[in-house]
Write a protein that binds this DNA or RNA. Structure first.
Length: 563
RNA sequence: GCGCCCGUAGCUCAGCUGGAUAGAGCAGCGGACUUCUAAUCCGCAGGUCUCGCGUUCGAGUCGCGACGGGCGUACCA
């Protein structure tokens, strides 16, 4: 009999719930947790202590009675004990662990992880940087985060589409075009200055030269503004594509803001104006007759009303943002994930409020999940690297990866912090190819296992796969710790996915690596004089290898066969 | 001022639905390579979980308040 870890826990919990509810004469909730310390079994519950005050009996007595009421499935649990003040502890049977290891060692993590997303579709929007220049370190964090969240959803069964929304029609696009024109026209009679708040990056000079050689020198500003804008946008998107390629991230779709203009935006505004709160439409014009349209966000619990259409007829970014999200909702996804930098908080909440007004709060809350990540500070030689965006002295994603020397290291290190936490990225640590670098620690464990398996294959040894072949084996403390560790991975992975928190995966990876390195140090795997033990340990190694491979794969980090 | 996030070891940070003695890496100290990779392991030391009040049988975790830091508070995105 094979139990998936989450099923095993559910069966045990159900049994405890039934027993406890029977005893208490009412429905009782039971929480199961791994005992913090070894020697107390694999799973424990304190339900007896919770029931004690209500029943007026000593917790231990209640625990004993509960144990006698338990109906557990055959072959799952080998030992139930009452410990300490009244904890009930359970130990999984060997046959449960053995079956688990066989699946993990042969098929990997996939069949062992709960798949609540099976048959459902998710859209993850991330990066969504304006096409105005190369991606910077902030985008890098977001790209890595989005990719890991996507991977995590896929592990739990979701069909995921990765989408990049780019603003190619607002004021910034014009400013970029004008900045390009300024460079292009430099030294010519029609010379114009770089606009205030314009873009100063060196990359624009290259674009200007290319434009001059492809279109000649006869263009002028503002007469040919569309040419400049189009050229700048095209080149900026090229830059972004190549930056993403460097990081190894691919999107399923690039969604253009301008494709929403004007129809979809007008429709969104019309729909909003049909919504009334306290007798007034959510859309109002002020000053009257100016054409300036406001969204009455204060009626939706937000602190300020915001302009959607300026008096010159141009949309502010919130208008297409709302239209874009309506479009995503209309496309019929079961889950929409938005990943933004923390500077988008206000906008994001405004958009969410508008969507709730149009689609219903419940639907929006259950479908849309927003991850707002904090900023990144680069640290070099113990000091913060100063960065500012428009002045063009920011560090680009490309420079970062080149300095670190590896996209994998960059990706992994970005994922070791939770999204909501501000991150100091230590360039010196990232660059070091040593034990101080947490990426190598994990990759090294994988490479070591690969080495063991190569040795085993050369000697004709292979992992145990027959039922019963593990009996009496893998009993050493280091082996048991490792098995237990692995058994917890599927459930924890599913929890990471549910919480959309990939950083926890790096914790799990580090724990597996620690447990493996420790095991490796103590015990030799391949031993021609002990073929049975060799096979058992090889299965354990294969299980470890597959787990590391699958988790690293989820994060988009390579698992090297040799280092 | 208001909104959101963060505050855990000297430093950088984990801590899953509230559970048994709060963890890891780095830095510090002391050990282990004739072996399937020492990019490793083992040990020692290091804590008023910012502070206060509250909820609970039980709080790093939940609530309220204070303090400190970050981000936002645009008719930029």
């Amino acid at each position: 009999m094979i139990f998936r870890p989450d099923e095993a826990r559910r069966l045990i919990r159900d049994s405890l719930v039934a027993a406890a509810s029977e005893m208490a004469g009412r429905p009782v909730q039971v929480s199961l947790a791994e005992p913090r310390h070894e020697g107390f079994g694999d799973l424990g519950t304190q339900v007896a202590m919770e029931l004690a005050p209500g029943l007026g009996r000593p917790p231990r007595q209640i625990a004993d009675a509960l144990v006698s009421l338990l109906h557990l499935p055959d072959g799952l649990v080998s030992c139930v004990s009452v410990d300490g003040p009244g904890f009930i502890n359970l130990t999984f049977s060997r046959s449960y662990y053995d079956a688990f290891l066989r699946v993990l060692g042969t098929e990997g993590l996939r069949p062992l992880v709960d798949r609540p997303g099976e048959g459902r579709k998710a859209l993850v929007e991330f990066v969504s940087s304006n096409p105005t220049g190369p991606l910077n370190v902030g985008h890098c964090r977001q790209a890595v985060l989005g990719e890991a969240v996507s991977g995590l959803l896929e592990v739990t069964g979701w069909t995921v589409e990765r989408e990049y929304y780019f603003n190619d029609s607002g004021l910034q696009t014009l400013l970029l075009g004008e900045s390009l024109a300024s460079r292009y026209l430099e030294g010519s009679p029609g010379e114009i200055p770089i606009p205030e708040n314009g873009y100063h990056g060196d990359y624009i000079e290259g674009w200007a030269r290319d434009l001059a050689s492809s279109r000649g020198r006869g263009l002028s500003w503002p007469g040919d503004s569309q040419v400049f804008v189009d050229h700048a946008r095209t080149r900026a998107m090229d830059l972004i594509h190549s930056d993403l390629e460097m990081l190894g991230i691919e999107f399923d779709r690039y969604f253009s803001e301008s494709s929403l203009i004007p129809e979809a935006v007008e429709e969104a505004i019309a729909r909003l104006s049909d919504v009334f709160r306290d007798g007034s439409s959510l859309i109002f014009e002020e000053p009257a007759g100016s054409g300036k349209k406001w969204l009455r966000l204060t009626a939706l619990g937000r602190p300020e009303d915001r302009v959607l259409v300026r008096d010159n007829g141009m949309y502010t970014y919130r208008a297409p943002d709302i239209a874009y999200h309506l479009d995503k909702f209309r496309r019929g996804y079961d889950l929409l994930v938005d990943i933004f930098g923390s500077d988008h908080l206000d906008t994001s909440q405004d958009v969410t409020a508008a969507l709730s007004a149009l689609l219903g709060e419940e639907r929006v809350r259950s479908t849309l999940r927003v991850i707002l990540h904090q900023f990144v500070t680069l640290v070099r030689e113990g000091r913060k690297v100063k960065m500012s965006t428009r002045a063009a002295n920011f560090v680009t994603l490309r420079e970062l990866i080149e300095e670190v020397g590896s996209a994998d290291v960059t990706r992994y290190l970005f994922l070791t912090r939770k999204a909501e936490a501000h991150m100091d990225f230590d360039l010196d640590l990232a660059r070091r190819q040593s034990d101080e670098n947490p990426v190598y620690y994990v990759q090294y464990a994988y490479a070591r296992i690969a080495g063991i398996i190569r040795t085993a294959e050369a000697q004709g040894a292979s992992p145990s796969t027959a039922p019963g072949a593990l009996e009496g084996e893998l009993e050493e403390p280091a082996e048991r710790r490792l098995v237990k560790m692995l058994e917890s991975v599927p459930g924890r992975t599913a929890a990471c996915a549910e919480a959309l928190e990939p950083h926890r995966l790096t914790e799990i990876l580090a724990e597996i690596a620690t447990a493996f390195h420790s095991f490796y140090q103590k015990h030799r795997v391949v031993d021609p004089d002990a073929p049975r033990r060799t096979s058992a340990r090889l299965l354990l190694c294969a299980a470890c290898r597959n787990t590391i491979r699958d988790l690293l794969g989820t994060l988009g980090v390579e698992a090297p066969e040799r280092m």
